[in-house]
Design a protein around this nucleic acid. Structure first.
Lengths: 255, 255
DNA sequence: CGGACTGTTGATCAAGGTCAACCTCTGTGG
DNA sequence: CCACAGAGGTTGACCTTGATCAACAGTCCG
């Protein structure tokens, strides 16, 4: 079993996150590398997973952005989450019969398809990987709860501030230290459908935030001028991911 | 290892659901029984888990209703979900350091506390139980996504219709055939905080639904007069839980 | 009997939706 | 090189949904 270092691993961003928070052992890292054999890519707008699909498989996003959405018969849609590099797209998909939501590429992306059999098989050989997956699922659930709280109980300004704040925090994790600018390849329509507002109102609110000197943007390039005020406006703190409890890190390594 | 039949099992409703959809083997059933040793009860309003708690443990609700909520500093709150008998309250809690949401009893409840060590230990002895847990987590995630879609993109009437419809569908699973009336022990304030509306508007909307002959209620006793119209109004279909894919049922039994 | 809690109803108001015009930027084809 | 189309963004006018405030009724419980 050859040593796998983050630099040459096909899915660097995920590794970076796992190493920081879960500290997986060599076996788990090697197992993870096995999962990424089926490397693929997709163009912007391409649908990786369609609502109602039965061909279930997990996916590991290596580069680019994607989103998960659900659509109503009359065209209204809700974006459930934005998927960033290093995100694993429902690790629990192997127990699901049909998908309830679509996954669509926003930018050009690279990803690995992980068929359920491979996932099961790998889990058997490196049970510590199961802890990693549960950890990711738990972080993900916390993120979804924050999203629900934002959409259900925050005002327009707060919701949008929260979304920007969340994305910035998640992007920070991909680098060693916070960058001074962010590339957010999302249109205002996407923002609207993510936070449950109309496009027009998103535009207005963003202009307001810009006028107040909280953010600055041209095109898809964003700058957060006052992290303090943005965070305060968002009301919710983004407190995931959290490190795995210490006792489990040992358990994960012991296997 | 003694045979465990649903009737004498301490957590009947969960078993009923698992047997219908996952068809666990004898080992898994026995393992499940081990998890329910620490039986407890709580009075209405009692807090089982507080936002920010570090004492992480899974919980298995055996009877009564509870809810999971998150609160903002200014008092606004969002109810994430209602927990019904047979629900397992975050099975992935063993990988979490601090809780992001509170769990509160609505009625008097009986539940089992499952400490993380016990859960891990049990998983080692009955790995097929892991599949059951992943299955539950996946159903749960689908439910959360429906909830998010409802709160983000449905109108007041639709949201409330959806909530009632969801609860009815979940309660149906606890019985062999749909009952003609439901006991929903939730105040209008709870409904409001679950779907992201004001209490007053919930009252108005419910009265309207009643005037239109879609539902009928006195106190906590509800009747759905037109399932068809309620479902149509809810826009979202409740299509979970889904049976576990066949291949995995074998995998689960083989262990 | 009084108080707390829950639900109902009315009056008023504001947050955000809808419609429409217009603008900028970008890519494309003549 | 220009003309044009299309997508994305901004702004204004107007309207609707649902929030807020307040009064009151029913019920449960001491």
């Amino acid at each position: 079993m050859s040593a796998v270092t983050p630099a040459d691993h096909p899915c660097d961003p995920l590794l970076r996150r796992l190493r920081r928070f879960v500290d997986p052992g060599a076996d788990e890292l090697a197992a993870l590398a096995l999962l990424t054999r089926d490397r693929r890519q997709a163009a912007p707008g391409q649908c990786l997973l369609r609502e109602g699909d039965t061909g279930r498989a997990a996916m590991l996003l290596c580069s680019g952005w994607a989103l998960r959405q659900r659509t109503l018969a009359d065209g209204r849609r809700q974006i459930m989450e934005f998927l960033l590099p290093g995100d694993m797209c429902d690790p629990g998909s192997f127990v699901t019969r049909r998908t309830d939501s679509s996954v669509v590429a926003i930018t050009a992306i690279q990803y690995s398809r992980v068929p359920p059999e491979l996932l099961m098989e790998t889990l058997r050989h490196a049970p510590g990987l199961g802890v990693c997956l549960w950890w990711m699922a738990a972080q993900h659930a916390a993120m979804m709860r924050s999203h629900l709280l934002a959409v259900g109980r925050l005002h327009a300004r707060e919701r949008i501030a929260y979304l920007v704040w969340e994305l910035a925090c998640r992007l920070d994790l991909l680098h060693d230290r916070p960058p001074q600018g962010y590339r957010l390849p999302i249109s205002q329509e996407l923002i609207a459908d993510a936070v449950g507002l109309s496009v027009v109102h998103v535009s207005r609110t963003l202009c307001a935030l810009e006028r107040e000197g909280i953010v600055h943007r041209h095109g898809h390039h964003w700058q957060i001028l006052s992290r303090r005020r943005l965070r305060a406006l968002a009301k919710l703190s983004v407190d995931w991911p959290q490190p795995l409890p210490g006792s489990l890190q040992q358990a994960s390594r012991r296997h």
